[in-house]
Design a binder for these strands. Structure first.
Lengths: 353, 353
DNA sequence: CTCGCCAATTGAACCGATTCAACATCCATG
DNA sequence: CATGGATGTTGAATCGGTTCAATTGGCGAG
């Protein structure tokens, strides 16, 4: 590498060496058509001789004010983008949209919460996609300060002033519940995502209804809509709040199967929960869907590959990513938009025996 | 969002409004300790009132010359980073190292080959990690022009002038072959990665030995080392060049099982090939490892999850990523370095029946 | 009361390009 | 031969900060 061999060559040096003004030299690189061929070649030749690396981006950038890249931010450590199934599917959609628009993609995150603020402040991007699986509030706040266009995904709050892409959680949850009811299930338990901070375990319908998080609230509302119409009282069914991880789901299932009537079906508010639950049940020798049916939510790729494959409510994950990018790049619709979801029936649900 | 409400506020405006010089205002943000508290607070207050978004990065950048981010580049479309198992494992390592060093991560790629050049030229990064699974030559060339530190991974050429992290392909291949020989296999076929451009199918030992790609060449060399020492002639064994995709692997297996003696074991030069082959065999009702044993190469996470789990040569994938980042960030060892690999015995190999 | 010193602040230069009004050429036209 | 219009080139202003030498003001020591 021609590294450190000499102080880096600047446009000015090239211009001087080629005997043209800096303005002309600049044109040679950024608008070659306006420069006479003879001059252009001479400049390019001297540039090569001097080992000029091309117009520095920072200089150009300073003028242009555009980076031509979008940032994707989350509270999780950066690995998350490559390991979490939902994040991956989403990123694939985002990546595709970026490719299509010739935009770059920067990952913004931090193991350490303090650094996150700094990283968001200092990311060289034209806008942000916010992945709000967790800690969405803070993420939005931090990003707001930056005063760049942004779009929140999987946001857990209802605040209409936040540009966000959401999915039809109520409709999706209703579809999931309807599917079970139509199969003939009446004894249905709910494995929910969070209603409040740092808590898990059995909750009452009233507690669930008072949830801070709109995602959990909307989904339970959807379930109830259908189940109560089918004559199943919200107070009669077991509802468990989980932390979307193995430990809490296992603890809830322990409780569920130790106390009270055994359910014939489980409504899980995420595929992750559903998959963990399925694993737990099978380890206990409880057949899925033979003894217990399970419906997930999200539609991550893993759900199609499990044994049995998971019946779930599929979000248009890649589409969410694509739209978010477009919204930022075109400074397009910066408002709230809702996308539909779809019931995907697979092998984890059947009529009760 | 306070968008377009007024032309964006600059440091100069804040300074003027607060009645201090621009220099002091700058210090308030970038070296708060040198400014008297009273002044600092006044400036910060006016900044907030004016809706100042903090020092613009471009201005700062221009001075600092450092972006504090590294780019990862590949020839594949950007989705690749989130979908390919090897890339994902690698990116996880890279991401971790970036987190640890407070560096940002930019993905550089392009569906369209022409755009790739532009994207590499215009990525705002301090250095590149090159993912050379394919088209590594061009990628290296493009990156060189940029005159930034870089590190090539999975590079298929021997050029010692290219800073690269490689693994011990010969040793790994030898270990794979040794494992099979020790189990008692004598009839062994090789499913190879590419030896030449746009070709697949059965090849002679001489053709394989003449390979342009050092990766394929090193691995076949490792196989031969052990097998010939065990008295198995290189000309007696079936070698197939694949394109690391389903179509070519299937075609090769068709050929292998239709003509000549049936092997009791297969050496695959990638986990991808091995997994495809295993699937093909099982579809044909050929038991793995009952009738045919398979050894892969790479050690991607998927290999541990297959049925049966794949015996393979594991590369220290995450470690490769980590080291590459460190090399770039510290302007550390910019040379060539070789990392060891490890035989991981799982369920896809057994003694021949 | 003067001197020297320290801390806080200022003002101007600078980072590396782009952009644009003004200027210089050259050629065709009336 | 003056005039007008292309075409190409120049020089200076500009982008939004950071940095540093110089300046100011306050305070203790002599």
């Amino acid at each position: 590498m021609a590294k450190g061999s000499e102080a880096s060559v600047k446009l000015k040096d090239v211009a001087k060496a080629a005997g043209v003004s800096q303005g002309t030299a600049s044109n040679v690189f950024s608008r070659p058509d306006v420069v006479r061929e003879e001059v252009r070649e001479r400049v390019l030749k001297t540039a090569k001789e001097l080992g000029y690396a091309g117009p520095s981006l920072t200089g150009r950038l300073l003028r242009a004010g555009k980076v031509n890249a979008i940032g994707v931010a989350t509270v999780e450590p950066m690995k998350y983008f490559f390991e979490d199934p939902f994040a991956r599917a989403l990123m694939a959609g985002i990546a595709e949209a970026c490719d299509a628009n010739g935009a770059g993609l920067s990952l913004v995150s931090a193991g350490n919460p303090e650094k996150l603020a700094w990283n968001i402040q200092s990311a060289l991007v034209d806008g942000f996609v916010l992945l709000c699986v967790d800690g969405g509030e803070r993420l939005v706040e931090l990003t707001r300060e930056r005063q760049l266009p942004f779009m929140a995904l999987s946001l857990g709050t209802d605040d209409a002033s936040i540009p966000a892409l959401v999915v039809d959680n109520i409709g999706g949850a209703a579809a999931a519940a309807r599917h079970l009811v139509e199969l003939g299930h009446r004894q249905i338990a709910v494995l929910s995502t969070e209603y409040s901070e740092r808590h898990y375990g059995r909750v009452t319908a009233a507690q669930a209804d008072a949830s801070l998080y709109s995602t959990s609230h909307d989904r339970i509302t959807g379930y109830w809509q259908v189940l109560e119409a089918a004559g199943i009282s919200r107070d009669a069914m077991a509802i468990f709040e989980t932390r979307n991880n193995e430990e809490s789901v296992a603890a809830c299932l322990e409780d569920l199967f130790a106390n009270g009537p055994r359910p014939t079906a489980i409504l899980a508010m995420s595929d992750r929960i559903a998959l963990i639950a399925m694993d737990w049940l099978q380890r206990r020798g409880i057949a899925v869907p033979g003894e217990v049916s399970i419906v997930g939510f999200d539609g991550v790729p893993e759900a199609a590959a499990s044994v049995p494959p998971l019946t779930t409510i599929a979000q248009p994950i890649a589409e969410l990513g694509r739209r978010a990018v477009l919204a930022i790049l075109n400074e397009g619709p910066q408002g709230r938009e809702m996308l539909p979801v779809e019931l995907v029936v697979r092998g984890s649900t059947a009529a009760p025996s």
